[in-house]
């Protein structure tokens, strides 16, 4: 059993999101389930898979730099009743093998779990080729797909164990590397498809998803409350599909302004998913999108990247102020 103690939570945050997912989350899955495989496309060292591969050599397959084949092999395994985890950089486990994902994971509804590392703007130093800012748009449009976006390491671990209970395709989107900000300082109840209200307020509701982004949204809400006395609601929308419609509809009813915040293109991402709900609702609150605009970024550190596209607390704060 994984112990979600404050001490462990702190150490996972330092260790980083990929090792948390594999050394802690997957280890739990592998102990419980005999019929699991992990496949990587030559990215086990970076993915934090090495320990896991050493511990479960009979469950681990490295297929080389060949992502399409990786999904295909996982499909064959899944057709034989194995739960197959595939992992590499987020852009390569999603759109590099997009047709395999669409057909084998989506149409055939196979039990394949895609874990994408360095999603969003994480690979700022590695260049535009490694950015992954359209993956939510793509993956959530695939039938049967569950799309998960953790806010911190403990949530990522919970997602890993929770998705092992689903008999169908999932995408786990991991942003950030190490020194991951902690959103949940202690254990909490996680359920796929059930958004978490981190703080209840009024007038403004921030709906955020992902590492750093939920944390920055909480900070922005705090600044706004300090300045105006109005406490915004902050919701962690960790499951982008299936969407917690009930939560979003309620926010649309009870608040004046909805602000969606995501490390993803504003086209087709989490904000769009929220808009698909709010637009159906008579008299729902207005929505403002914070995300990556439809233009190219300059490259650099994670802090630079997030600042550049306006995903830091002060940027979010400014957007709230100018829209209320």
């Amino acid at each position: 059993m994984i112990e979600y103690s404050p001490r462990n939570i702190r150490s996972w945050s330092i260790m980083g999101i990929n090792p948390s997912v594999w050394s802690v989350g997957f280890a739990e899955v592998a102990e419980k389930k005999e019929n699991v495989s992990v496949l990587t496309a030559d990215l086990s060292r970076f993915s934090g898979l090495e320990r896991c591969a050493a511990k479960y050599p009979d469950k681990f397959y490295n297929v080389g730099i060949a992502e399409q084949n990786m999904v295909g092999i996982a499909a064959g395994m899944a057709m034989e009743g194995v739960q197959a985890y595939i992992t590499t950089y987020a852009p390569f486990v999603t759109y590099r093998c997009a047709d395999q994902v669409r057909h084998l994971m989506g149409n055939m509804n196979l039990n394949i779990k895609a874990v994408g590392s360095s999603a969003g703007l994480t690979s700022g130093w590695s260049g535009t080729a490694l950015l992954s800012i359209n993956d939510i748009a793509f993956m959530r449009s695939i039938p049967n797909m569950t799309v998960l976006s953790p806010a911190d390491c403990s949530e990522a671990i919970k997602m890993m164990t929770a998705m092992s209970e689903i008999d169908g395709p999932c995408y786990l989107r991991l942003c950030g590397t190490t020194a991951i900000p902690v959103v949940y300082k202690e254990d909490y109840e996680f359920r796929i498809g059930k958004a978490v209200t981190l703080q209840k307020g009024s007038k403004i509701a921030l709906i955020a998803t992902g590492v750093n982004i939920v944390d920055e949204s909480l900070k922005a809400a705090k600044s706004y409350e300090e300045e105006t006395g109005v406490k915004p609601t902050v919701v962690n929308l960790h499951t982008i599909k299936p969407l917690d419609r009930e939560c979003i509809e309620a926010l649309g009813d009870t608040h004046e302004l909805i602000v969606t915040v995501e490390e993803h293109s504003i086209i087709g991402g989490m904000g769009s998913a929220v808009a698909e709900v709010l637009s159906q609702k008579r008299g729902a609150a207005r929505q403002v999108f914070i995300g990556i605009k439809d233009e190219n970024c300059k490259m650099g550190s994670r802090a630079f990247m997030l600042g550049q596209v306006g995903l830091c607390a002060e940027d979010i704060f400014r957007v709230i102020k100018s829209n209320i």
Binding site: Y61, N69, G72, G76
Partner: peptide, 19 residues
Amino acid sequence: FSGGSLGMGLSAGIGMAII
């Protein structure tokens, strides 16, 4: 298998053979 999107079946066969 659900064939038709060409180039996928051999990978799937490999997965089945490995298992």
